[in-house]
């Protein structure tokens, strides 16, 4: 808790007054750290430039830039940096790209807007600073969205994750009628109240980038600068994998093996959490919330695969979700007892 006061001040000194986003302020704000204003205001040329600008922007705002979690997840929220760190009294400010997998959304790379593997950009700041909306709008400007020409709206969207036992209130953010982000004030995770409350921002990167770059089909999107020596499109990188995974997800994945893996993950998660806190080897208390949570993530992804294979009936669906939620809740119970949650 000791750094909390400073932390809030830091955000209050943020680059933008709550009075709005004025170009002159912005140029000043980015002088020195970012490229010159003219460069900064120009439209990005590629998907990766948008990612890099977001990374720079949130780094500038004081977030720790993390790397993607090294497991298959359905959304950036599942990264323990969000799912677990949203809990507890400790301040926290992170941003990261998270590759996300949604097997049922696979369309063999044919659909202009749907992918079974895509990227989310995730920001989590706890406690939520009072000017989080302004900070968020600043991030849109940083990727070339001119607030004077576009229609940005905060439209009610109460977020809930039945698998994480989490909910929050907030909005989906619309830019010219398109949902470009989710903006949520977390209230509960794993059945625990979030105190203080984290603010979470989630950007669907492909969709946002397609809009900024004026691309109609995701596969046509330039991944790197089109004037590079070797220009590459999203197609060059992902078309084949979309096909391969779509086939595997829908028709080939061995459901018996998956079911077994689901159960194994469930057992292992419970087993990890059932251990004594006291580690006999080191003689210190080690609560293994994160390794247990890995098993929860695993179970969640396997469930998504089974769902894509169409072997889960509507009634079973609820039961599976309940089982994953039970794991997530247990992990949250464990996490809040750790130092990272401010318990020690």
């Amino acid at each position: 808790m000791s750094n909390q006061g400073d932390f809030v001040n830091f955000f209050e000194m943020g680059r933008f007054s709550t009075g709005g986003l004025i170009d002159a302020d912005m140029r000043k704000a980015y002088s020195g750290i970012m490229p010159p204003a003219e460069d900064y205001m120009r439209t990005p040329k590629s998907f990766q430039e948008i990612m890099l600008r977001l990374q720079n922007y949130w780094a500038e705002q004081g977030c720790a830039i993390l790397q993607p979690y090294d497991m298959e997840v359905g959304a950036g929220t599942f990264h323990p940096a969000t799912a677990l760190r949203a809990l507890g009294s400790k301040s926290w400010a992170v941003a990261y790209v998270q590759p996300s997998r949604r097997p049922t959304d696979g369309r063999y790379g044919e659909n202009p807007n749907r992918l079974q593997h895509y990227y989310q950009y995730q920001v989590l700041i706890k406690p939520s600073p009072h000017n989080l909306q302004e900070l968020y709008l600043g991030s849109l400007e940083s990727i070339g969205i001119d607030m004077a020409l576009h229609d940005i709206r905060f439209v009610e969207d109460d977020w809930e994750s039945p698998t994480l036992g989490a909910w929050g209130l907030g909005w989906e953010v619309w830019c010219d009628g398109m949902e470009v982000s989710q903006f949520t004030y977390f209230q509960q995770v794993g059945g625990h109240d979030c105190l203080p409350v984290p603010g979470e921002l989630t950007y669907g990167l492909e969709r946002l980038a397609m809009y900024v770059l004026g691309v109609d089909h995701v596969m046509d999107m330039p991944f790197n600068d089109p004037s590079s020596l070797i220009p590459m499109t999203y197609r060059d990188i992902f078309k084949q994998t979309e096909e391969e995974y779509a086939r595997w997800n829908f028709d080939v994945a061995n459901t018996e093996v998956l079911l077994k893996q689901f159960e194994e993950a469930e057992v292992e998660c419970k087993n990890i959490l059932a251990q004594d806190y006291l580690d006999p080897k080191t003689g210190i208390d080690i609560i293994m919330a994160h390794p247990a949570y890995d098993q929860c993530i695993k179970a969640s992804h396997i469930f998504n695969l089974l769902d894509a294979r169409g072997v889960i009936s509507v009634t079973e669906r609820q039961a599976f979700i309940g089982r994953v939620r039970a794991l997530a809740t247990k992990c949250a119970d464990a996490f809040v007892k750790t130092a990272a949650a401010g318990a020690i």
Binding site: H150, D176, M178
Partner: peptide, 26 residues
């Protein structure tokens, strides 16, 4: 829309139209 723009909403309308096309394509 919730804003007056220097291009009389042309950018906004274009964006909305694009989203609509994607929705209707679905």
């Amino acid at each position: 829309a919730n804003i007056e723009t220097s291009d009389q909403g042309a950018t906004i309308l274009k964006g909305n139209q694009k989203v609509l096309a994607a929705r209707l394509a679905d």
